[in-house]
């Protein structure tokens, strides 16, 4: 349970990070909160030769709103997400989910950027980003690009992030009035990843669901966006039958594996149950309803 040999870098500027990433390529790893990377290193499942710590870079932290977009710095910690008035008011699914991530120690260090960039299907933020239709700002020495979260995840630990790229910001379209959202997660205990979890956003107008998104955590190679589940409630009054149809669709879309958390049958059933609960709660949170 001790990591291999590595060299440690702590640059002060984003440009310096990018230069180091360009220099080391595959041998370099960005260190944010370290709560996914360091355990992997201790188990020697990851043995990067260079660690590039981004914690000294103030510009990578913070949460602001500009032009209908909530912009979150990649190195913002989960504790900061939980404490953000802006998010609690306008996008509470993020602080709600952060509260379900491990314990205060993990949340004080772990960052939202690390959670999104890590590529572990067990991470909670990716499904939420899928549901919110967020996008990521990726930078390298050549410049920067914006990529939709819905395009980012490819397979377990495989994302669109290139070796020389740094995730600097997360852009979340500020949810419109009349949007309700909820993240429901079932886990075995504190510090466990989800048996299954569902992120739901939905908008209501005149008793009808005008827009919805449903995304799932830890029941596939990546977080999964269930378009069918969203379709099942769109245009409906989100009554019990619509909710059941959405749950069935989410269950059909998920691909969990059997592990210590339970059988495929159980985890699939929990996808249905979490979807049901998330829709019901999101609905109850639609302003004015």
């Amino acid at each position: 349970m001790t990591p291999g040999v590595f060299e440690y870098h702590r640059p002060n500027k984003v440009e310096d990070v990018l230069a180091l990433l360009a220099e080391f390529g595959d041998d370099g790893k960005v260190l944010a909160g370290g709560h996914s990377l360091v355990p992997m290193m201790k188990l020697r499942l990851a043995e990067p030769a260079h660690i590039i710590d981004i914690n000294a870079i103030a510009s990578l932290r913070g949460i602001r709103e500009e032009e209908g977009m909530i912009v979150i710095g990649a190195a913002t910690t989960q504790a900061e997400i939980m404490g953000s008035d802006l998010l609690n008011e306008k996008c509470r699914i993020l602080p709600d989910a952060a509260a379900l991530i491990a314990d205060p120690q993990v949340r004080n260090c772990g960052t939202i950027g690390g959670n999104c960039a890590n590529g572990d299907p067990g991470n909670d933020d990716p499904a939420i980003m899928l549901a919110l239709n967020a996008s990521y700002t990726l930078q390298n020495q050549a410049g920067q690009r914006q990529i939709a979260a819905r395009e980012f995840y490819e397979a377990v630990y495989t994302t669109a992030l290139a070796e020389d790229e740094l995730l600097t910001e997360i852009h979340v379209p500020a949810p419109a009035k009349g949007t309700g959202m909820s993240y429901q997660k079932i886990k075995r205990k504190v510090g466990d990843y989800a048996i299954a979890a569902a992120a739901v956003t939905l908008s209501m107008s005149a008793g009808q669901c005008t827009d919805a998104a449903v995304a799932l955590t830890n029941v596939g190679d990546t977080a999964l966006l269930s378009l069918e589940a969203a379709e099942a409630i769109k245009g409906s009054a989100v009554d019990a039958r619509a909710i059941d149809r959405a749950a069935d669709a989410a269950m059909a879309d998920c691909e969990p594996v059997e592990d210590m958390r339970g059988t495929v049958e159980y985890r699939t059933a929990m996808v249905g149950e979490m979807t049901r609960r998330a829709i019901a709660e999101a609905l109850s949170r639609v302003a004015g309803s």
Partner: peptide
């Protein structure tokens, strides 16, 4: 008595 095992019983009895 993990959730998964208790659920197994619930499921077998059709209580869920």
């Amino acid at each position: 008595h993990t959730q998964a095992k208790v659920w197994q019983t619930l499921n077998e009895l059709g209580l869920n």
